[in-house]
Measured scan of single mutants.
Amino acid sequence: DEVEIEDFQYDEDSETYFYPCPCGDNFSITKEDLENGEDVATCPSCSLIIKVIYD
Rank of each mutant, 00 (worst) to 15 (best):
D1N: 15
E2W: 15
E2N: 15
E2G: 05
E2V: 06
E2M: 15
V3Q: 12
V3T: 05
V3D: 00
V3C: 03
E4K: 03
I5Y: 07
I5H: 05
I5T: 01
E6G: 03
E6C: 04
E6N: 15
E6A: 11
E6P: 11
D7W: 14
F8V: 01
Q9R: 09
Q9T: 07
Y10R: 12
D11Y: 09
D13Q: 13
D13E: 12
D13W: 03
S14C: 14
E15S: 09
E15Q: 15
T16L: 13
T16N: 14
T16P: 00
Y17F: 07
Y17W: 14
F18Q: 12
Y19G: 04
Y19Q: 09
P20I: 08
P20K: 12
P20A: 05
P20Y: 04
P20S: 13
P22W: 03
P22A: 12
P22G: 07
C23I: 00
G24E: 14
G24K: 10
D25C: 05
D25P: 02
N26Q: 06
F27N: 15
F27G: 12
F27W: 10
S28G: 08
I29Q: 04
I29C: 03
K31S: 03
K31V: 12
K31G: 04
K31T: 02
K31F: 01
E32A: 12
D33S: 14
D33R: 13
D33H: 03
D33Y: 11
D33N: 13
D33E: 12
D33K: 14
L34F: 05
L34T: 09
E35R: 06
E35H: 03
E35A: 04
N36C: 15
N36D: 05
N36W: 08
N36H: 12
N36K: 13
G37H: 06
G37K: 14
G37A: 14
E38K: 10
E38P: 13
E38D: 03
E38R: 08
E38Y: 05
D39V: 08
D39T: 08
V40S: 13
A41P: 07
A41F: 03
T42E: 13
T42A: 15
T42Y: 08
T42D: 12
C43G: 00
P44S: 10
P44N: 06
S45R: 07
C46Q: 01
S47F: 11
L48F: 04
L48N: 14
I49E: 13
I49S: 10
I50K: 15
I50R: 15
I50D: 01
I50V: 08
K51A: 04
K51W: 10
K51I: 10
K51H: 13
V52W: 01
V52F: 12
V52C: 10
I53V: 08
Y54T: 14
Y54H: 14
Y54Q: 14
D55A: 11
